[in-house]
Amino acid sequence: MTKEAEYTHGHHESVLRSHSWRTAKNSAAYLLPYLKPNMTLLDIGCGPGTITTDFATILSEGHVTGLEVPNSDILDKARAYAAGRGVTNITFVAGDALALPFPDASFDVVHAHQVLQHVGDPVQMLKEMRRVTKPGGIVAAREADMGGLVWYPEIEGMKEWQQGYIQVARANGGEPEAGRRLHVWAQAAGFPKENLTLSVGPWCYYTPEERAWWSGLWADRTVSSNFATSAIKHGIYTQERLERDAATWRKWGAEEDGWFTLLNGEMIARV
């Protein structure tokens, strides 16, 4: 039986500001060498469709399917984004990542970016990803590890924010240190250890523009996204602490020598 989980971020504008920045190049570079133009690919948790649409341009003779949770207007945004880029070999559908609405062996590649950390049963999701992948195909996953954040300088309150975020994500049924667990989950889902290729892909923010963007979206997420609602609901945060953590983010963003790195665990799993 799978655990119910609540998506910690939701689809507030501050979240989409981050998700819309993501491209195949900056968020799925580890997968690109494996792709061939005639492949079919499923992108689970496609969000606003930026990575998904990039995949479709690379798989120019194939087809890409993006999947998001039901009852989400984010799919309309994804369709509009793909149409705006003139990409037609792409379909967006609603569905459950723990019970994918596709027959066995439907795709050459099944990809998920920052999704396994938010589901109640990541092993079940990987089993489903494996099920709908053709023999000889690839399951690819990339997940942040929120316990592996590194920043400079040591602004008072940043460590408390990190610990608070991890608490809230776990209270919502997810695993925010997913990056370091991908290979363990994959083996539990039936992938032999020798079929796994692991890597790490960092995101790094240090220019004035990057600092302003990164600190601003996290400050806004802290007080305005689903994170704030669930943090208070679980009794982990007060409104005062949310506002204090948002101010901490803005203080870090104003530091001329500010530097922030987030590590992402990456996995190629052969079926």
Rank of each mutant, 00 (worst) to 15 (best):
K3W: 08
E6N: 14
E6K: 15
T8R: 08
H12T: 11
E13F: 15
E13C: 12
R17Q: 12
H19T: 10
S20G: 13
R22A: 09
R22Y: 09
K25F: 15
S27N: 12
A28M: 06
Y30R: 07
L31Y: 09
P33T: 05
L35T: 00
P37V: 03
L41C: 00
L42T: 06
G45E: 01
C46W: 03
G47K: 04
T50Y: 12
T50R: 02
I51E: 06
D54I: 01
A56I: 03
T57K: 05
T57F: 04
I58T: 11
S60I: 12
G62H: 02
H63L: 05
H63N: 11
H63V: 02
V64A: 01
T65K: 03
V69F: 03
V69H: 10
D73T: 12
L75I: 11
D76S: 15
A78T: 00
A82Y: 04
A83Q: 14
T88Y: 05
T88I: 11
I90P: 00
T91G: 00
G95L: 10
G95N: 06
D96N: 15
L98E: 11
A99N: 15
L100M: 05
P101R: 05
F102Q: 10
P103R: 09
D104R: 13
D108R: 05
V109K: 00
V110G: 02
L116Y: 01
V119I: 14
Q124S: 13
M125G: 08
L126Y: 08
L126P: 02
E128Q: 15
V132P: 00
P135N: 01
P135R: 13
I138M: 11
I138Y: 03
A140N: 11
A140Q: 09
E143L: 04
A144E: 08
D145M: 00
M146D: 08
M146F: 15
G148I: 04
G148W: 03
L149I: 14
E156K: 13
G157Y: 00
G157I: 08
M158N: 02
E160H: 09
W161P: 02
W161M: 07
G164R: 08
V168D: 00
G173A: 13
E175C: 15
A178Y: 02
A178P: 04
L182A: 00
L182P: 04
H183C: 14
A189M: 06
P192C: 14
K193W: 12
N195D: 13
N195T: 07
L196M: 03
L196Q: 06
T197K: 13
G201P: 02
G201M: 14
P202H: 11
P202Y: 05
C204Q: 15
Y206F: 14
P208H: 08
E210C: 08
E210F: 04
R211F: 10
A212V: 10
A219S: 10
T222M: 02
S224D: 11
N226A: 13
A228S: 09
T229P: 03
K233W: 07
H234S: 10
Q239P: 04
E240Q: 14
L242T: 02
E243W: 00
W249Y: 07
W249G: 05
W249E: 05
G253A: 05
A254M: 06
D257S: 10
F260L: 13
F260D: 07
L263S: 14
N264S: 12
E266R: 10
M267T: 01
I268K: 09
A269M: 01
